[in-house]
Design a protein around this nucleic acid. Structure first.
Lengths: 361, 361
DNA sequence: CTGAAAGCGCTAACAG
DNA sequence: CTGTTAGCGCTTTCAG
């Protein structure tokens, strides 16, 4: 910096100003300094900058795990938004425990947090210790996915309700689906809905991921609530919980489709992988999955997330679209906003979900 | 740090030593300092540390893009290895161009590079400017995926050859495949191989991703070379190039399976998505895909990467396993090694690929 | 084995 | 609008 100052015939303070507050420097002087900076190829030392300003343009993003298309998308959105605003992302997955003599204590172990200006934490199931650590860091925080019981903290959430409700109603409507052959007794309580050619609420099943997972829990809740609006009190066997993978979908599907006749007619899956597993199970059990608009005695399936997996299924999978990349982008945007306005009221960003109907329903 | 020093009755220099070179401090003293550190909850200021030492425990990882399961896996492996060694990852995708008045010039735009101790760049197709930038950063570098023409630089590569060769030979062997009905003239040149019940080299096709992509190019090359060993000079129509996605696979499959009788009997795909597209096309065209060990007049398909997509296909997709997470981990490991031993000879880490046979071949 | 002292390269008052 | 000056919090000789 001293070299630049000398070359431009100014003091280092002016060089610093050119870098940080160009408006407070005479146009003339600034240009001269700028030229010197360029010819000398000067780059400020970020550590010295940080030492003075106590902030950086680095953001931490802490994920429960990194796998599958979902996290790629999330990161893609987050990275794009961060870069658009001149920030960069420090990623870390929780990576439970470890061992091996490694000194890994995650993001909070070393003093990496010292580098970042803010932290986005994704919390998909109850995790007090993680939350405590995040709080303890003293960093500006944005929470992804957990609603935090209305606590005063920035958060970005997926509005599972809209998409779930839409999917359930779509499945209930029987549009493109079967007309049921008579009652099936399974706990029907009058049924104020269903409509002509509709599906009975008792013939609907939700196959979720882990029960503790916030999204799965909420989707299940809304699933049940939507059936309740039809006057149907869903039985426990109408919501199944397992893992977010194909295997669980296949297993659940095996149970559902090989069971005695009260077979589900509409199935909502907790994500697309589960849905694909269900589809496989249906095929194995000889249960038809209707192409769009066709009528059949089979089952109709809707996935969740609307990943590229939907194009892999035959027929293409109907799915509830979750704006995954937007979720990452919104988290970053919210965090940066917070950095710039520390005193503003905490905000909650809720991203809508919506049904995308394809061949399986 | 001064507070800690005072509390422990030592100088700040000693506190620093306890943190960095504990062996050079009397056990007694060290313990006392350690206690003070804990009770006071002292965390060193990373910027001040960096200012003195001019290094950090941050590594940059620059990817061409972030999407799909491949990059999740890569990052998962890289993140795990980094954390195991007390490092953290700064990610960035190239994100070509941008605009919007954003100040985004990627990782090299701001001075973020100043934070990192080393950089892993993944280069999947020729990109001189990226390489120039990376070099210009003056950072220790490791290149992922590009072989750099034997330049003196650390690199981690996927040995496409082993897996490709294995897959081609597997497909040629006809194990579980069809016995062809007579010659098909398509440019056969003697054919020193094929074996009883084998597939003719002329009946093989490679459906790759973009032709410029290093992996696709190498896989195609080895594909052709392996056929050449059988005395077959592959025609241009035996290697197809497109995108790394389902749509391209479906399109290519459409061409292949709906074409006049010289239909391919063995198809190697450039990745699993393409393979799934091929499978869909085969189904649409009424071409059978054999279950493992069965005989059929259909086509046999092998994918590449061995992602979880393999479990989504019916029958499950045979695929060449690429140790994706290992690739990320190896890059990080190599980079850290380089940081610790700047003068060592550049190394090349090559990760093997191998065929995993499942239902589609 | 420990302490004193000299900066690392930058920013931010404070004058002028 | 610009320069002077005083550190930011740490590490690292250099003595002892």
């Amino acid at each position: 910096m001293e070299d630049v100052a000398r070359a431009a015939g100014v003091s280092t303070a002016t060089v610093s100003r050119v870098l940080n507050t160009p408006d407070r420097v005479a146009r003339e002087t600034a240009a001269r300094v700028q030229r010197a900076i360029e010819t000398l190829g000067y780059k400020p030392n970020v550590f010295a900058q940080g030492l003075m300003t106590r902030r950086s343009r680095l953001l931490g993003i802490l994920l429960p795990d990194i796998h599958g298309e979902f996290y790629s998308e999330l990161l893609r959105g987050a990275d794009a938004e961060a870069r658009r605003q001149g920030y960069h992302l420090l990623i870390s997955s929780e990576g439970r425990g470890l061992g091996e003599g490694g000194q890994d204590e995650g993001l909070f172990g070393g003093n990496v947090v010292g580098f970042i200006a803010g932290l986005a934490v994704m919390i998909t199931e109850p995790n007090e210790s993680l939350l405590a650590h995040a709080r303890g860091s003293g960093l500006p925080l944005v929470v992804i996915d957990e609603d935090m019981n209305g606590e005063r903290i920035d958060r970005v959430l997926v509005d599972n309700a809209s998409g779930t409700r839409e999917a359930v109603e779509h499945l209930l409507s029987g549009r493109g689906g079967a007309s049921q052959q008579g009652g099936r007794g399974a706990g029907e309580q009058g049924g104020g809905a269903g409509g002509a050619g509709g599906v009975l609420p008792g013939d609907m099943v939700f196959v979720g991921g882990p029960a503790e997972n916030f999204d799965t829990a909420e989707r299940a809740r809304v699933f049940v609530a939507t059936l309740a609006e039809r006057g149907h009190a869903a039985s426990a066997s109408q919501t199944l919980f397992g893992e977010y993978d194909v295997e669980w979908g296949r297993e659940a599907g095996g149970r559902l489709f090989r069971a005695l006749p009260p077979r589900p007619v509409g199935v909502l899956a907790g994500n697309d992988e589960i849905a694909l597993g269900l589809l496989q199970a249906a095929e194995d059990a000889g249960v038809e999955v209707p192409a769009r608009g066709e009528r059949s005695g089979g089952v109709r399936v809707v996935g969740f997330d609307d990943t590229r997996l939907t194009t892999v299924a035959r027929p293409p999978l109907s799915s509830v679209r979750v704006p995954t990349a937007d979720l990452g982008a919104a988290a970053v945007r919210t965090l940066i906003e917070r950095l710039q306005h520390p005193e503003r009221e905490p905000v909650t960003v809720t991203l809508p979900t919506r049904l995308v109907v394809r061949g399986t329903s």
